[in-house]
Nucleic acid binder design. Sequence first.
DNA 1: TATTGTTATACTCTATAACTATA
DNA 2: TATAGTTATAGAGTATAACAATA
Lengths: 154, 154
Amino acid sequence: MATEARPGPAVRAKDDPGVEAWGLMSEVFGANRGRFIATLSEFDLWPPQWFALQALDEPTPMGKLAGMLHCDSSNITGITDRLEQRGLVERRAAGHDRRVKLLVLTRKGRNLRDEIHERLSVPPASIAELSAADQRALRDIMLRAVENGANSSE
Amino acid sequence: MATEARPGPAVRAKDDPGVEAWGLMSEVFGANRGRFIATLSEFDLWPPQWFALQALDEPTPMGKLAGMLHCDSSNITGITDRLEQRGLVERRAAGHDRRVKLLVLTRKGRNLRDEIHERLSVPPASIAELSAADQRALRDIMLRAVENGANSSE
DNA sequence: TATTGTTATACTCTATAACTATA
DNA sequence: TATAGTTATAGAGTATAACAATA
């Protein structure tokens, strides 16, 4: 059996622009991790608490939030407790099913979410220093990528 | 003082391709979080352990690794303990300064790092389904971005 | 004196399993 | 019976402060 006959992913990577692009994107994102953590820490938020605030665009059952955060439902209890103590979210009855509790952002929670979102939306130097043409091209490609994601099964 | 006179970041965002591009990149990355966590979990690794394996390209003082992972040195002790128990890294004397301990990947650690890297390097559908031209353009733009990052102070 | 890595402490996140209350 | 959320538990990550060994 000739192992060279059918190149594996590691070999293909060098010729595959998609793999290369994804690797470079990961690098740019990795370089941004420090600022991300530092920003949340300024607001006394742990990453999962931020993910929760960000996910609560509309009243959301706790179990559904667990799915969005890719964690067990039991964790959502604690995360919610701490956000609720700070007055950032509320537990609300669901009406149709008395087992379900809907999480809702308070006014204070919405304000905090918007403030942090604005801070994190500032692009890092690696992106901000691209030429205007590159920035526009990148935006357009990413728009198409997000469309792909929306149509994907996952 | 007219608050409308000088639009803030939130207003600028809609006209700024860099901000838009960064926001969309964040969206693509966020959508990939589930696969990232699931992949590490397959190998019984927590994210910080993976970041450590990934950072250890060469023998590295523990304090320097703490800087790379943006955490306190005291955490590196525990993370290293667990990686060392599994035979993935080694603590080695530094020679010139007997306070310093260098962390080195073992053969087993290098193999595991390469295997995981190969898995994570597969682009998500949102990127893989872009046209060949878009993938090449994205790769080229990201190459310039990474260059920017390398030249940046941060 | 200052620095490297460790230990002790306290808090948060994480999954699993057992539980309550609903359905 | 099955499901939504809680509690209990144990292991992992996190920062702070105090410490030993070394510089």
